[in-house]
């Protein structure tokens, strides 16, 4: 079979597992995410368990990938090459953190919960996409 078709099917499956995992973890709920960030208030540590579980499995995947010549359905791994801790990284992450705290949404849960038909999520995603397009149009380096 054509590798591109398999890659599309793989991407669909991985997105589905990712969205299922987010739903199971409770992190689709912005109140729970804000509860994790509320360390000086009614702290909800659940997100640490979610991130911990995800990082451990992903670490196994990364370790296995290092032993492979190339991915199963691709000729090369597409990994970030930049190593510098520069101001765009820090400023961008800080802006993201502020937005994350304000609404309790990061990109994954926001997109996944689009299927739940809430206007608030749709509005957030619309604004998020606008923010991405604004960046890529006016601030993209190179």
């Amino acid at each position: 079979m054509n590798n591109q078709i398999i890659r599309i099917a793989t991407a669909l499956l991985c997105g589905l597992i990712f969205g299922f995992g987010l739903s199971l973890s409770g992190m689709l709920n912005p109140v729970r995410v804000q509860g994790f960030l509320d360390i000086f208030g009614a702290w909800d540590p659940t997100l640490a368990f979610v991130l911990g579980g995800a990082v451990v499995v992903a670490f196994c995947g990364v370790t296995l990938a290092k032993r492979m010549q190339h991915p199963v359905f691709e000729w090369t791994f597409y990994l970030p090459t930049s190593k510098r801790i520069d101001s765009p990284l820090i400023i961008g992450s800080a802006l993201f953190g502020i937005g994350w705290g304000l609404a309790g949404f990061c990109p994954g849960p926001a997109i996944a919960s689009l299927s739940q038909g809430l206007w608030q999520t749709a509005l957030f995603v619309l604004a998020m996409v606008t923010g991405m397009v604004l960046h890529d149009r006016f601030f993209k380096k190179g």
């Binding site: 991407a11 995992g21 199971l24 973890s25 992190m27 995947g61 991915p71 597409y78």
Partner: peptide
């Protein structure tokens, strides 16, 4: 539930990397 959900998220990330070579 958080931990279980995290394991699925990690699995999705590992599979996308190992099969398609992409960062999730």
């Amino acid at each position: 539930l958080g931990l279980a959900g995290g394991l699925f998220i990690g699995l999705a990330a590992a599979l996308l990397l190992l099969l398609n070579g992409r960062i999730a």
